[in-house]
Design a protein around this nucleic acid. Structure first.
Length: 410
RNA sequence: GCGGGUAUCGUCAAGUGGUCAAGACCUCGGAUUGUGGUUCCGAUAUGCAUGGGUUCGAAUCCCAUUACCCGCCCCA
C-alpha cells in the first residue's frame, strides 16, 4: 500500500470548504488594499534560495528539496519571498509605479522532521510590498495581516515586533552581544556556542533554561535593552509603532525577536497563538531592503510576511459542507437526467441515485442528504408532473413540469 | 540530526499467551415491491504495520524494519 509521504497530507473534502474560505478571504482583504496576486513556479534555481534566503540558514543548509535535471540544480521552494523577488526583477516591476504590492498563496517544501504544526509540504499565504522605505509600508503590511486574521475570526493573537536596525547598527549590536557573552561561553549550551560564531543574535532565542538565566543577568540585559540602533532606524521604528497605535493594533515589543532568515533588516514581527503547541507562530515577516539588490535587481526597499495556512486552519472555525438542494427520486434514468440538468442549469445543486435502488431507499438517501426530494415516478411521468417534497416540513405538492422550479426555495 | 511515544476493519476502539479477534459509528442488504431521517434484523478483519524468532499454542513475549505522532533544533 502506497501512502502519502511523511510530512504531507491530503486536504479532504470535508476540510476543503474551510480552505477555500481562507483563500477567498485572502483575496478579498488584499484586493481591497490593492494588492495583486502573483503566482510563481513551485521550483526555482537552487541558487535563488541559496542567495536569497541565505546560506547560513537551516532552510538552505539542510531543509531544501533539491534535485538535478539536465545539468541544472533545482529546488522546490521552501518559501516564496525569493521567488516573488525574482519575478519582480525578471519582469521589470521596478518600472511600474511604486510601490508594487503583491500577495501569493501556495505550497512550500521543507525537509524537516514533522510534528504538530509542521509538515514537509505546507501552505503559506503571504504579502510583499516593494518600493517604499517608509514606515507606513511596514504598518500597512502588518495591518493587512491583522485584518486578514480578523476576517478569519481570529482576534486575540499576540503581535510582537522588534527592529533589527540597519546593517551598520546590527553589526554594533552583534559585537556588543559577543563581548558581553564571551565570559559565559562555557556555561552556554552547545547550540549557543555554535550560534556565537555564526549568528550571535539568534543566541537570544535560545530556550535552554541555563542559557536563559545568563540572559537575565544585569549586564546582559543592559546590552539587550540598550539602544544600539542608529537614530534613523530608531525613528523608523517609532513611526511604525505610532501607526500601529493609530490603527488600534495592540503589539508587544520584544527585543529578543530575531527572525531566522538572513534578509531581514529594521522591522521584524511575529504573530503568535497559544493554541498551537510548540510551533506557535502563525505569521512572520519584516523588512528586507537589500534582497532585491542581492538577487541582481536595482536596490529596492521591501517589506512583507508569510502565514502558515495549516496553522491558521487549526485555529479557525471550520465550515460544514452545504446540504444538497434537490435529490431526484425516480426509476427512469433518462427523464431524471433531463430534470437534473434543468435543476443545475437553474442554479440548484442536484443529484440522484446511481445505484438503481428502490423508491424507499432513494427517499431515505434524499432525506439524509438534501433539502428537497423531487419525485418522478410512474404517476408523475404519466401526468407530466413532478412531486416536490420539502424534507424538513414533510409537505409535498404535485405540480406540472413547467412550473416546478418555483416551488423549490433555497 | 537527536530524544520520547504509538501501530487491531473506512473511523473510534476492546483484547495483557489458550474457544470462531468484543462493541460502536459509517457503508451495504432486508422488515410483502410509491413516502424518508426513529426502530428492528442481517452482512462486513482466516486478519491484529512488515519480517523474523520464542512457544504445543502469540494481536498478546523478544529482535529488527517501516510508518505515524510528540518534543529539541528550526520555522509559517
Amino acid at each position: 500500500m502506497i501512502q502519502a509521504q511523511k510530512g504531507t497530507k491530503d486536504i479532504l473534502p470535508e476540510d476543503v470548504l474551510t480552505w477555500q474560505n481562507m483563500e477567498q478571504k485572502a483575496n478579498e482583504v488584499f484586493s481591497k488594499a490593492n494588492f495583486q496576486e502573483l503566482r510563481t513556479p513551485i521550483f526555482e534555481a537552487t541558487e535563488l534560495f541559496a542567495r536569497g534566503v541565505g546560506d547560513s540558514t537551516d532552510i538552505v543548509n539542510k531543509e531544501m528539496y533539491t534535485f538535478e535535471k539536465s545539468e541544472r540544480s533545482l529546488t522546490l521552494r521552501p518559501e516564496n519571498t525569493a521567488g516573488v523577488v525574482r519575478a519582480y526583477i525578471e519582469h521589470g516591476f521596478s518600472r511600474l509605479p511604486q510601490p508594487v504590492k503583491l500577495w501569493y498563496k501556495g505550497p512550500m517544501f521543507r525537509y524537516e522532521r514533522p510534528q504538530a504544526g509542521r509538515q514537509r509540504q505546507f501552505h503559506q499565504v503571504g504579502v510583499e510590498m516593494f518600493g517604499s522605505a517608509e514606515p507606513s509600508a511596514d504598518a500597512e503590511v502588518i495591518n493587512l495581516a491583522v485584518k486578514y486574521l480578523n476576517e478569519l475570526g481570529l482576534n486575540d493573537l499576540e503581535i510582537e515586533i522588534n527592529s533589527l536596525g540597519c546593517p551598520d547598527c546590527r553589526a554594533k549590536y552583534r559585537e556588543a552581544i559577543k563581548t558581553v557573552l564571551k565570559p559565559y561561553l562555557p556555561e552556554l549550551c552547545e547550540d549557543c556556542n555554535f550560534r556565537y560564531e555564526k549568528n550571535p543574535l539568534r543566541i537570544l532565542d535560545c530556550k535552554v533554561d541555563s542559557c536563559k538565566k545568563i540572559f537575565e543577568k544585569d549586564e546582559v540585559q543592559k546590552v539587550i535593552l540598550g539602544d544600539f540602533i542608529c537614530p534613523e532606524c530608531k525613528e523608523h521604528f517609532e513611526k511604525v509603532k505610532e501607526y500601529l497605535t493609530a490603527l488600534n493594533i495592540p503589539f508587544k515589543e520584544n527585543k529578543l525577536l530575531v527572525r531566522g532568515l538572513d534578509y531581514y533588516n529594521r522591522t521584524v514581527f511575529e504573530i503568535k497563538s497559544n493554541n498551537l503547541g510548540s510551533q506557535n507562530a502563525v505569521c512572520g515577516g519584516g523588512r528586507y531592503d537589500s534582497l532585491v539588490e542581492t538577487l541582481g535587481g536595482v536596490s529596492t526597499p521591501a517589506v512583507g510576511w508569510a502565514m502558515g495556512m495549516e496553522r491558521l486552519f487549526s485555529l479557525i472555525q471550520k465550515f460544514k459542507s452545504k446540504r444538497l438542494d434537490v435529490f431526484v427520486v425516480s426509476e427512469n434514468i433518462a427523464e431524471t437526467f433531463k430534470i437534473i440538468d434543468e435543476l443545475r442549469t437553474n442554479g440548484f445543486s442536484a443529484e440522484f441515485d446511481y445505484a438503481n435502488r428502490k423508491f424507499k431507499k432513494q427517499l431515505d438517501k434524499a432525506a439524509k442528504t438534501a433539502k428537497y426530494a423531487l419525485i418522478l415516478m410512474e404517476d408523475e411521468l404519466k401526468s407530466n408532473t413532478v412531486t416536490i417534497k420539502n424534507l424538513d416540513s414533510s409537505e409535498q405538492v404535485n405540480v406540472s413540469r413547467d412550473e416546478y422550479l418555483s416551488y423549490i426555495k433555497i
